[in-house]
Design a protein around this nucleic acid. Structure first.
Lengths: 264, 264
DNA sequence: AAATTGAGTTCCATATAATAGAACACGTAT
DNA sequence: ATACGTGTTCTATTATATGGAACTCAATTT
């Protein structure tokens, strides 16, 4: 049905846009509003050039300037993102299954998808809260210290997983955070088990159990997890939930084949 | 404290970025995935040029391509937006007050801010009722058919409000939707009352009462609203809530002067 | 009070990147 | 078999972004 296969450029030169996205990343990832000079130090650009680039970003609403002339992320981003999220098919298909898993375990359930070397959280179901917050949703977390991330890596072909691990800039968040070697070793284990644990590798006091989800051609790779405080989620408890988590992942994959339609 | 006043370019040429943002808007505002040809028709660009532009957007993760080669909004947007939202000071300051208003009324409470001719919803607190409402955090809604929008317009200087109304492309959502003339007339009324109603002007069956919120120099203009189904929210009921809504808006403005700090 | 520094803005010749248009590839319908 | 629709690639030309310097304005320092 499709005409020609879309060429997916892996990494390359995105010209002017690439430079602007670097600036956008700098400002959005900063701890607070940034002055012109702060951005100048972070970005390797001449002053005049940077000034015009920032002006363009502000005019388009991707950045904003506060009363002190400092730059912060613009609200235009919210509008764009809400449309990206609102119609995401993976999320829509998974939603009822996540809810069911939340009911069963009583703990927080996450849905994540692999993008580059990060896991982007698409959805979250916590306790009673029917209110969904962006707080976690949308956040990009490193693949090497999240249950969903390790689960996702485990279903990639070895060479592709290895290449991806090679790109990672590892950062030691806790005493248990993986290195490249220990990560690759654990991935082998996860392949056999079919599920992954996060043993306080990202944040002290937080554990989770996760299972991978993938489409046949691996165009979609992600997973789900049940997360909670270590005092409540002992490793024994987590192990008990590995089965339901894998089962839920399985059901989501079945729903995807129907919902997203079999490749015609 | 600040050195030179940042020049806020009102509207102008944003060069390459502007063209790319048009494309991003086209795809994010579409009902579903778009084929290359669909975008070609919407954007006034030669095929070769469009192809490269889309490639760049895809490489940066602002757009994605599905298995059929169709374009849809990219998840990179989620990560950027979650950071924009997570640290938004207005939202953080308002949060407890919104929650209190939700507790009092039992209906859905919204926080919105004026951007151009749209209201962007920054936050939402829903009751327990599973009433489906098509409002989502981040969504940009037209200023002329939302309670928050009309409330926001009412505190702008007349000439500025008039100019803004002049820019609006009016669309008749329901039988009650405003025209430019009726909108300007109602704004006068809202100025006197201090609160605005939405009498099913955006969506049949949905009403709300709203109050404006603004900073001294009008660098921030927005409002809050209590929204719900018309069968439950009679106009009498809405009128009763006008006072608490105005009171909450007042408390948020007081909190802003402390939280955001007095202009040094 | 004058001079100096720091922060941000504007200008312009040059280099670079985006553009338009045509040609190509490939699957689908006639 | 042929033509068509859809998407991709290539290249000379043109438009745009760049980098460096000069400029403005306010806040410190001497």
């Amino acid at each position: 049905m499709s005409a020609a296969k879309a060429s997916m450029p892996e990494r390359g030169d995105t010209g002017t846009l690439g430079k602007l996205m670097v600036l956008l990343d700098v400002v959005t990832h900063a701890d607070g509003p940034m002055r012109f000079t702060d951005i100048l130090a972070a970005a390797d650009q001449p002053r005049g050039t940077l000034h015009r680039q920032l002006s363009h970003l502000v005019q388009e609403g991707l950045l904003e300037i506060d009363e002190d002339g400092r730059y912060l992320p613009g609200l235009r981003l919210l509008d764009l993102a809400s449309r990206s999220w609102g119609r995401n098919e993976f999320r829509l298909v998974a939603e009822p299954h996540l809810k069911a898993l939340q009911d069963l375990t009583g703990e927080t359930v996450h849905l994540g998808v692999l993008r580059g070397t990060s896991i982007i959280y698409l959805d979250k179901f916590e306790g009673q809260q029917p209110v969904r917050m962006y707080s976690q949703i949308g956040n990009a977390s490193p693949v090497y210290c999240t249950g969903v991330g390790k689960a996702a890596l485990s279903i990639l072909p070895r060479e592709r997983a290895g290449a991806l691990v090679g790109e990672i800039a590892f950062h030691r968040f806790t005493a248990s955070t993986h290195t490249a070697e220990s990560l690759l070793a654990e991935i082998e284990e996860i392949r056999k088990q079919g599920h992954a644990f996060d043993r306080e590798e990202h944040e002290i006091g937080i554990r989770c159990v996760a299972a991978p989800i993938w489409s046949e051609n691996l165009s979609l790779v992600g997973g789900i997890s049940v997360t909670g405080p270590a005092y409540r989620l002992t490793m024994e408890r987590l192990s008990e939930w590995a089965d339901p988590v894998r089962g839920t992942a399985q059901r989501i994959m079945e729903a995807m084949r129907i919902g997203l339609g079999p490749r015609r």
